[in-house]
């Protein structure tokens, strides 16, 4: 249970000792999915939640969104506790792994959904939809049916839809996991660019460390319901906080490996302690 004070203190997301349970009834307590996690995300920051399947990262995300009840702990944003605030009033966007586009609406009306809920007038809605579709590289798709889109296109539309109502926090639940590798790599860059361009605070859940390193400013490694380490990608690679973290990052001791991303080349220390690092 690591307490990591966020760089900006009170603004942004503040999760304290969150506990989420599954399958609890009156007779049995159920199993624990999230076991006392504390995490801070500063305004404008992108934090990745990295961990293997079943470690509780999606449950934590859903708890932050308000879709799962907290069995303990608290979630606050900009200093205000969100206990009792229903999902539709939190101002948090959520992007699912399979997009969850509304099948009965076309692309434009999907993106406009959040704006309709906010009561934005039609002309303004149309302008914003066009702007967002251009941002995600799907200019002119507004009239298309969602059934004709490819997987990557669907996720872009979902991203545009989530961003349209200007959420104060965007939660992304393994949005790229259903796509093939090459697409994933390309979209990871695009997602980060879009988020940074719009200045959106985001929590990005993934089980792929390449993706986490590409998208996020900081990476929180999670396993079995607990946070193992939260740090910037280069810090993680240089100083993994334990054998479990190292294992998960693919940093098995004694292996020579080069991990490349578009922007950083990070080298790995071999047993002799000699390595090449380029910053």
């Amino acid at each position: 249970m690591e307490r990591t004070p966020g760089p900006a203190g009170l603004t942004g997301l503040a999760v304290r000792d969150a506990v989420v349970r599954y399958g609890a009834t009156r007779r049995r307590p159920g199993s624990v999915a999230v076991d006392g996690v504390s995490l801070d995300v500063a305004a404008g920051e992108i934090v990745a939640l990295l961990g293997p399947s079943g470690c509780g990262k999606s449950s934590l995300l859903r708890a932050v969104a308000g879709l799962e009840p907290l069995a303990g702990g608290s979630v606050a944003f900009d200093g205000e506790d969100l206990a009792g605030v229903p999902v539709h009033r939190r101002g948090f966007g959520l992007l699912f792994q399979d997009g969850q586009l509304f099948p009965h609406r076309d692309v434009g009306r999907n993106v406009a959904y959040g704006l309709e809920a906010q009561g934005v007038p039609r002309a303004e809605r149309a302008a914003r939809v066009a702007e967002l579709l251009a941002d995600v590289g799907l200019a002119g798709y507004a009239g298309r049916s969602v059934a004709t889109l490819s997987g990557g296109e669907k996720q872009r539309v979902a991203l545009a839809r989530a961003l349209a109502p200007r959420p104060r926090l965007l939660l992304l639940d393994e949005p790229l996991s259903a796509l093939d590798r090459r697409l994933r790599e390309r979209l990871a860059v695009d997602v980060r660019d879009t988020l940074k361009a719009t200045g959106t605070t985001a929590v990005f859940v993934t089980h792929d460390h390449d993706e986490a390193f590409t998208v996020a400013d900081r990476v929180a490694v999670m396993d079995a319901g607990r946070l193992l380490q939260v740090a910037a990608p280069d810090v993680l690679l240089r100083a993994p906080a334990g054998p479990r973290v190292a294992e998960f990052l693919g940093l098995a001791p004694g292996a020579d490996e080069l991990v490349r991303t578009d922007r950083e080349q990070v080298g790995l220390r071999d047993e002799d302690g000699v390595g090449t690092t380029t910053g």
């Binding site: 995600v136 590289g137 799907l138 049916s145 296109e153 390309r186 695009d190 660019d193």
Partner: peptide, 13 residues
């Protein structure tokens, strides 16, 4: 931002 075009036009309607 790269745009993705597809050859699919059938489903437009």
């Amino acid at each position: 931002m790269r745009t993705r075009t597809t050859g699919r036009t059938t489903g437009r309607t």
